[in-house]
Amino acid sequence: MRKVYIYKGFERFWHWTQSFLIIFLGVTGFEIHGSFSFFGYENAVNYHSIAAILFIILIIFAIFWHFTTGEWKQYIPTFENIKGQLNYYVFGIFKNAPHPTKKTVLSKLNPLQRLTYFGLKILVIPVMVLSGLLYMFYRYPQKYNMSALNIDGLETIAVFHTAGAFLLVAFLVAHLYLITTGNKPTTNLKAMITGFEDLEEEEVKIEKEEPIKIEEEKLPGTVN
């Protein structure tokens, strides 16, 4: 096992900012939805709008990063080994069986993760951003007398936006749990905080052939 720098600085910044924003958007959003009251309706609306804009800015940076680094390839869905991965979660995990998908810097995600994140990136987030933008700006055609573009009402927009929000909450619950399914319960969390994770020797060797930064020396002592 060797320490490998698996999550880059921006990636971690992106992940944690995104997680903060999504949770914040969820809390303010469900308050706007009428599920509970916490900030006060007016504040919730204002905060939600500000967080939404910040989130969109973050997404723009993230897209840029994904394409310039080629990291987007990590999310191409694959059905290879998907059965093995399912088997692991249903049986293997209880018997301390090894992870069926080897984690490497070039392939950080198992097939189930690939599929989930691909769905989030390609479906849920775009639907949320688009319906959110429409939510914010659907009155503009009427405001500027562009009656041809008039949107009759908020209902459809709201239905998509809320449905997406429920999916994200469910995702969050599962995601928080699945963090604990690393080699040790805290492995994945630590990796996303520090960027480093202990990966098996053989993969590191493979990685070594690539010009990948291995940070063992730079780090004083172990991360623990």
Binding site: I32, H33, G34, Y41, G153, L154, E155, A158
Partner: peptide, 10 residues
């Protein structure tokens, strides 16, 4: 006859 956030839901 219209959808209003906070009041309405599907």
């Amino acid at each position: 006859d219209f959808y209003m956030p906070g009041r309405d839901y599907n």
